[in-house]
Design a protein around this nucleic acid. Structure first.
Lengths: 245, 245
DNA sequence: TAGTGGTCTAGACCACCCG
DNA sequence: GGGTGGTCTAGACCACTAC
């Protein structure tokens, strides 16, 4: 009911079957014509679903042959998607535990990079949330998030302990659309060295991202610091742009 | 002549104008109807081009409003694409210089990870190419590539000094389609510490990728090691998959 | 030759945004 | 209400793969 798009339903069903290994790596999906009959939709609708599957790394379409599954379970897919920690945790069955290290209100002018990234005025109030992600009590990730207070005045420490994305999408009905990420490798601060405990070297893999809503408004600035030895970023990319000539 | 696709031409033209700042960040593109008239094509064709622009992080489409440019020059975009070093170098005007450190023939069984990644038999012959990328004679990146010899018997050290991708796509006419990448941070080997000279800490950002052709055949295994302090990976991602219900 | 995916069209109806 | 993007259709023609 919530989402009656035909092509999304087909996408959901096919991607689900691929993830559950009903369609295995290397196997072919039914042809477009068969899918047209099976779902009772037009060919362009089927093709829209298949095109999404291809973009997201589930299949490769072969002209004259068919669509073959290229999704690989063993690669801990899909981490290059815009996805929250809670969602990754659930999909991978990770044994992680979140601790809210701090939850405070700050002013944009004291965080100039955030101010610039979110394109807000100096006196905009922000929530600053620091959360550690622990496995067997050992900190492996420290997330620092900045949210514009006006957009989500009811955000609380309790929500931060659960999933903020869930809150934003389900409670507030906002649509999270896209993000820019930058990955670097940086020395840890004293605070971080304390938190991580015995991080050798005292460097962290750092992922900074600016997350935008569907109306193109930036609403979150995130700095995610990872124990370097545990860091692993998986990416799927396509060669879409060819030079002309 | 080479590529007469209408939607690709529209994509090329619009993305070019965005990159050249003719359409600036935050500005709107002409509406779909206007583009339909301008290019003399059907609306679905225009939409296919716009959809590609959105997927690749150039624009965000806003229902009821239009398409707004979100591409940001300052982010050294687009590095998360599947793109060769030579192409990045050209598009960013980088002052880099490539040295082929070694060019040899090896057998798959001596490189089990490569054998598995490329899904080949034990006795498959491979080219193993090691190239350093230097800025002012200082090594910042060391690329190690493995190619299946049978697929490109004429590959040579001279070609490796230029662009192997150019050779594969233009000379051999093969279509490079997609890749899986994994980014980690790892201690350098003695060989690498020598090559990089004074790398502090002696860690490298490592990008491993398996590159596939359009027929889904893996043809390249690449290990790209970067001086950690210089490493910067930029990624654009969309939240495409929503949970149903 | 039959089947597959790739491109393109002309038109329809809908939901959303704004003045 | 008029414009914008989102979804969907039925049909056409093409290029490629396989037998």
């Amino acid at each position: 009911m919530v989402n009656s798009n035909k092509y999304r339903k087909i996408y959901q069903e096919l991607s689900g079957k691929i993830i559950n290994d009903e369609y295995k790596h290397g196997e072919q999906l039914p042809s477009e014509n068969l899918l047209v009959k099976k779902y009772g939709v037009s060919r362009e609708t089927v093709r829209k679903a298949l095109s999404l599957l291809q973009t997201n790394g589930f299949i490769q379409k072969l002209k004259g042959k068919g669509s073959v599954v290229i999704y690989d379970q063993s690669l801990n897919f899909p981490v290059s998607q815009l996805i929250s920690f809670e969602e990754i945790k659930q999909s991978l069955n990770m044994d992680y535990h979140t601790v809210v290290e701090s939850f405070e209100t700050v002013v944009a002018k004291d965080h100039p990079k955030v101010q610039e990234a979110l394109n807000i005025s100096e006196d905009t109030k922000l929530f600053r949330v620091v959360r550690s992600r622990r496995k067997n009590d050992l900190v492996n990730i420290v997330d620092t998030d900045y949210f514009i207070q006006e957009m989500m005045p009811a955000l609380s420490k309790e929500i931060a302990e659960q999933s903020i994305y869930d809150y934003i999408e389900r409670r507030l009905g906002l649509k999270i659309a896209y993000s820019n990420k930058v990955i670097t490798f940086e020395p840890m601060s004293e605070y971080e060295i304390d938190l991580f405990v015995e991080a050798t070297p005292p460097y962290a893999a750092v992922v900074r991202s600016i997350v935008h809503l569907a109306d193109a408004i930036p609403f979150q600035y995130n700095v995610s610091k990872h124990r370097a030895s545990e860091f692993k970023f998986v990416d799927f990319s396509r060669r879409t742009i060819e030079k002309e000539k």
